[in-house]
Design a protein around this nucleic acid. Structure first.
Lengths: 351, 351
DNA sequence: GCTAGCACTCGCCTGGGAAGAGTGCTAATT
DNA sequence: AATTAGCACTCTTCCCAGGCGAGTGCTAGC
């Protein structure tokens, strides 16, 4: 009411100071402190007026009448979106990231290392989704007969990753038939991405049926079983969950239990991370914004990571709402870029 | 001093009642309660005397002067070793176990299912070590050239499990050389256990050297790299950790954190479970007995499980010291037997 | 050897009171 | 009109005392 424009420069400056202060101290911030800290040379009384306005707008909140103010989710959101001044990464941290994510033998190692780095350097929980298989190239496929119609399929992608599953075929194949099928599939599909393969399988099925080529038809049918859009759920690597047990925000056993249950169910976490795949760059969920009760008192700072300019996964940091966003955001950003680089297909190729 | 023989029938009966009562109620047990519950028709005063004796022996302990008594670790131990009357499994639970552990496609599934059953039916944490690979049979081996001296080796054991690792060879192999080596190794080692293979590789290396058969020598050398005693650490599947967050014994955040850290480090847990491999049947660690601080307030009820009469792994339940041993013990016992059965090589074999 | 009785200890809960922090409001000041 | 000083008020936290209840240890008696 009083002020012409409620969210003026000054209020924002005060909100910024308040959030920064709360993040660093964890205590509700009073008008006295803000008066000294804001650099605005205002008396506590004035600040109290501003605070009342901010409270009306739902940006801050008073735990009880004689405590200072604490940012609400909207307050954090405004802070993160418009007020925050990111801090450059500590150079030691950068070194550690580079060191850890330099080229390794095994891609899965890189995922694990990234997760561990995220959690250890932030002292919160680190999470990295396994790269989506869709875009990777098929390199080799192999069938092994188990019993009757059960066949163990092994296929290798992107030079490193080995996948396997058991399929049930419609008819019984002899080992040599399986061998032939594998040879055939290897010869025509190697080097193509899995989506491309799935697509091609679909096309060629018709063609083979038309041409009445039984051998080819068998091979394609097995391929179809192998590459059918899988219930194969996405998965992630989570480390440093125990770091979360130190935070007073999560000292409540019930909350903590819900959170850890969500971690082991995985499902909610995966949904949440999936949403981040779409967005480029760093994305943040603050408190209840995520929509999952388990994360009510947590924030999630994520970034998608890409291999060859294609988004293949998401990584991030999970911590209490009250976290040092100005450090975490660049940290997550850079880790995502380095992980993408580490996963990039190596120039080396088979002799 | 007073009584001729300190640990007479009567004291044991009282200890038993006390432990049972404490396990079911979680409250220190007073002399009044024991007087009514023990079935011995003794006055509280008499019981107080006995309690004083038991306390001198370190079997029970009084949290403070006007609380009842609580069993100590030694008290639990005596109870578990000599006083406990095991209860048969609830028939519903037995059904669920049978159902869950009936033959499945994938051994790893069985491990996961076992762990989940353990945790869900006991409402504590369930743990199952992955079966030791040593005794399983090699079924198929395959090499895939990556770059220069890097070779991806894939091998399948026991009809189901696929393992892969990247090895660095001394010289550069062509794809066809690798194919030959794989063929050779498949022809002579298939069906043998991994230990046997490792042993045989060692023998044949000499022989091949003597015979100066280069092709064979190459194959053997690759095999050596493949099967060398691995740093491949044992691993386990742990589920239901979050169940532990409900117990008041573990309400202390510091304790809980230590415990969960141990779970994610894995190392201590593995050591502990390893000790259980040696023992036949059910083995129990109560509180500090384990020797690992993280488990100070937990008990671990384990049993090894066997495939074809060979111990290959351990499973168990982790919970607070105050757990219903009389139910958990048979439960773990039976689960171990059923898991062993489920893992037994299926009669079915490739056509 | 067992038991009744009793004084005692200790944890837990309650209530009161003082200290401290920070607010909202009002009236004065710029 | 915006800012500030002053003040009453609210609410939390800490501490302390006292009462209650549970259960003990000890002693004397059965």
């Amino acid at each position: 009411m009083g002020t012409s424009q409620v969210l003026n420069e000054r209020s924002l400056q005060l909100l910024k100071t308040l959030v920064e202060r709360y993040i660093s101290d964890g205590q509700p911030v009073g008008s006295r402190v803000l008066s000294k800290d804001s650099g605005l040379n205002l008396s506590p009384a004035t600040i109290r007026n501003v605070m009342a306005d901010l409270e009306d707008l739902g940006l801050v909140h008073s735990p009880h009448t004689s405590a200072g103010r604490v940012p609400t989710v909207s307050g954090y959101r405004l802070f993160v979106d418009s007020l925050l001044t990111v801090k450059p990464l500590k150079s030691e941290d950068l070194t550690l990231l580079h060191q850890g994510l330099s080229v390794t033998d095994n891609n899965n190692d890189a995922i694990g290392v990234a997760s561990r780095l995220l959690s250890e350097l932030t002292r919160m929980a680190g999470v990295v989704t396994l790269p989506r298989r869709e875009m990777v190239c098929l390199r080799h496929i192999e069938f092994l007969p188990l019993s009757n119609t059960r066949v163990l399929v092994i296929f290798v992608t992107n030079e490193q990753e080995v996948h396997n599953k058991i399929i049930h075929t419609a008819k019984v194949f002899s080992p040599s038939e399986l061998q032939q099928a594998a040879n055939y599939l290897n010869s025509i599909y190697c080097g193509r991405s899995l989506v491309a393969v799935r697509q091609a399988v679909f096309e060629e099925l018709k063609e083979a049926q038309a041409r009445m080529n039984q051998g080819m038809l068998d091979a394609i049918k097995i391929a179809q079983l192998t590459f059918e859009r899988d219930n194969e759920k996405e998965d992630y690597v989570l480390t440093g969950e125990t770091n979360l047990m130190g935070f007073s925000e999560l000292a409540d056993m019930d909350r903590l239990k819900k959170l850890f249950e969500a971690f082991s169910q995985k499902q909610d976490v995966i949904h949440l991370l999936d949403q981040c795949m779409k967005a480029e760059g760093v994305q943040i969920f603050i408190g209840e914004e995520s929509g999952y009760q388990a994360f009510d008192h947590c924030s999630l700072v994520t970034s998608s990571y890409s291999v060859s300019d294609e988004v293949v996964g998401v990584l991030g940091v999970i911590g209490p709402t009250r976290m040092a966003y100005e450090k975490i955001i660049p940290f997550v950003d850079i880790t995502a870029k380095l992980l993408g680089a580490a996963l990039n297909p190596k120039s080396s190729s088979p002799s």
